[in-house]
Design a binder for these strands. Structure first.
Lengths: 269, 269
DNA sequence: ACCAGCGTTCCACTTAGCGGAACGCCGATT
DNA sequence: AATCGGCGTTCCGCTAAGTGGAACGCTGGT
C-alpha cells in the first residue's frame, strides 16, 4: 500500500546527494582554480566556509588515495598523481581531440598563430588542446581552464549555435561577466552579435576576453547537430587584426570538415 | 559482539579519514581504470563492494560538481570536465614536463622512435608525456596510466636509483606482478639487474612489461638527488633490438642534462 | 623570548547518511 | 503482446559516522 506522500512532504526533501562528496569536489576544484601550486588547510577552510577539522580529514582521505600530496616540511597540500590519471582518462575518451589534432597543427602552420580546441560543458567551455607556432611572440592558453560562453570567439561561436531556448536561458540566468573593457555585457547587443556569427559561420573577438588577444573561431557539430566543440586561431591583437580574414577562411573550412567526421550532415530543412 | 565492536572502535578512532571521501576517490579511479568510457551504478557497486544506493548518491553529488556526467537516455555515467580541469591543473605545475618537452622531441626525431616521460608516484610511475615519430608502425603509451616500479625500463631506472632501504621496502612489500613471460619476478634477480642498471646509467627492457615492445630509459634527478622522473625511448621489439645502443647513448645524455636543469649536481663523495 | 597563526587532534553530541527493500522502467526474449 | 530479468532510483527507520568548537603543539617571523 502506498502511503500518503503529502504527509511526508513536510519533512526536508530527501537530498539525493552527500555533502562530504560535494565538499571533496569543491576542495579539488579549489586546487585547480588556485594560481599557487600548494594550499593550506586554513586557506581552503576559509575560502569554502568549511571547518578546518573537516578540510584536514578530507585532504587526508584524498592523500591516502593519491589525489592529494603533502609536503611534510611545509605541511602544505597539492594535487596528486591520481588527479592526473583521472583527468587524462577523460581526455582519452574525448574523440574530438584526437580528430582535431592534425587540423590544429595544419591551422597553426598555415597561419603562424596559435590554434586551440575547446569543448562545451554546460554554460562554460574548456580549452582541451592547442598548437603554438615557433615564434617568439605568440599566444598561449591554459589547458583545462573554463570560460563562460559569452566572451571570446570560441565561446561566442558555441553560444550562437545553441537552440534558441538555450540562448534565452543563458542570457536570463548567467550574468555577462566583464573580462575587459571590450567584453559584450549587454544582452541585446550580444543577441545581435550571435545573429551575425550565425550568418558569417565564424566568430571574431578583439580583446573581449583578454585585452591583448584577438581570435577567430568556428563551431564543431556532432551527429545530433549540437555544437560540442570549437576551434580558434588566436594571436596578439596588434598583428592578428590584419590576419583575421585569412584566419577566418582557414578555421571555417577546418571546422566544417571536422563536423562531417563526427557524423554531422548539413541539410536544407 | 558488543565487546568486539568496542575493540574495533578503539582501533579505528585514530583514523583521521572520512569514508565518504575515500569512496569518492575510489569511484573516480574506477572510471580511470575502466577500459569502457561509461560505467553503470550496479557495475561500480559490485566492483568496489559498496551498496548501489551509496554509489548512486555519490555519482549524483559528483555530477552536480561537474566531475561526472550522465547520459539521460542510457542512464550510464562517465567522467566530466571538472575531472579534466583538476588533472590539467596538476600538469600545469609539473615543471619537469615543460622542461623535458624539447628533449623528448629531439630524442624522437633522432631515433625515429617514441620518446616518453614518466614521473614517480609512490611505488608506481605514470606516463605524463610522449612524442611519437611519423611512422606507420610505432609505439604509443597511454598517458596518465600507472605501472609498478619493477617492470619496463622506465620503471627499473627509477627503482634502481632509490635509496637502498626503499628498494628493500619495495622488494619486501610489493608483489612483483608478472606482465609478460619476460617480466622479472624473482627479487634476487631483480636486485642484480638494478645493480647493472646503476653501473650502466640506463635500463633496458625487451618485452618485460609489454610483449611486443622494447625500451631504453634513464632517470632524472632533482636538486635533492632523488630520481623523480624517467625518460625512455621505445619501439616495436623486432626493430628496436638493433637500435638499443644508439638509443641508450641518446637517452643518457638527455637525462643528465635535464637533471642538471633541475638543480642536480653530481659529486664525487 | 615572544607571539600569531598554522596544522593537527580531541571528544561529546547529533544528524547525516547507510542500506535493505521496494519501485518503476526499459529492452531482450518468447 | 506479454513476460521478465535487471537496471537505476527512491524510500525510511536506525545508528554509527562525522561534525566542529576548543585545545594543543609547532614553527617562523619579529
Amino acid at each position: 500500500m502506498v502511503a500518503n506522500k503529502a504527509l511526508v512532504m513536510n519533512h526536508v526533501t530527501t537530498a539525493q546527494t552527500i555533502t562530504a562528496v560535494e565538499r571533496t569536489a569543491e576542495i579539488l576544484t579549489a586546487f585547480a582554480r588556485a594560481d599557487t601550486q600548494t594550499l593550506g588547510v586554513t586557506e581552503i577552510a576559509q575560502e569554502l566556509g568549511i571547518s578546518k577539522a573537516v578540510v584536514h580529514r578530507t585532504l587526508n582521505s584524498l592523500r591516502v588515495k593519491g589525489f592529494i600530496e603533502v609536503d611534510p616540511s611545509t605541511r602544505r597540500y597539492s594535487l596528486g598523481t591520481a588527479a592526473l590519471t583521472v583527468g587524462l582518462a577523460f581526455l582519452r575518451h574525448l574523440d574530438v581531440r584526437d580528430l582535431a589534432r592534425p587540423a590544429l597543427r595544419d591551422l597553426s602552420e598555415r597561419s603562424r598563430e596559435t590554434a586551440t580546441l575547446s569543448i562545451r560543458s554546460g554554460w562554460d567551455r574548456i580549452y582541451v588542446d592547442q598548437v603554438t607556432p615557433p615564434r617568439e611572440v605568440k599566444m598561449t592558453v591554459v589547458l583545462g581552464r573554463s570560460f563562460p560562453l559569452h566572451a571570446g570567439s570560441s565561446s561566442k561561436s558555441l553560444l550562437a549555435h545553441l537552440p534558441g531556448d538555450e540562448i534565452d536561458e543563458y542570457l536570463e540566468n548567467v550574468e555577462l561577466h566583464r573580462f575587459t573593457d571590450l567584453t559584450i555585457t549587454d544582452p541585446s547587443r550580444l543577441r545581435q552579435e550571435l545573429a551575425e556569427i550565425r550568418a558569417n559561420g565564424f566568430a571574431v573577438s578583439m580583446g573581449e576576453r583578454q585585452a591583448d588577444a584577438a581570435s577567430v573561431a568556428a563551431p564543431i557539430f556532432d551527429h545530433s547537430r549540437k555544437p560540442v566543440a570549437s576551434m580558434s586561431l588566436c594571436g596578439p591583437v596588434e598583428r592578428f587584426g590584419a590576419e583575421v580574414d585569412d584566419a577566418a577562411a582557414l578555421i571555417v573550412a577546418a571546422s566544417q570538415q571536422l563536423s562531417r567526421q563526427l557524423g554531422f550532415r548539413p541539410d536544407a530543412s
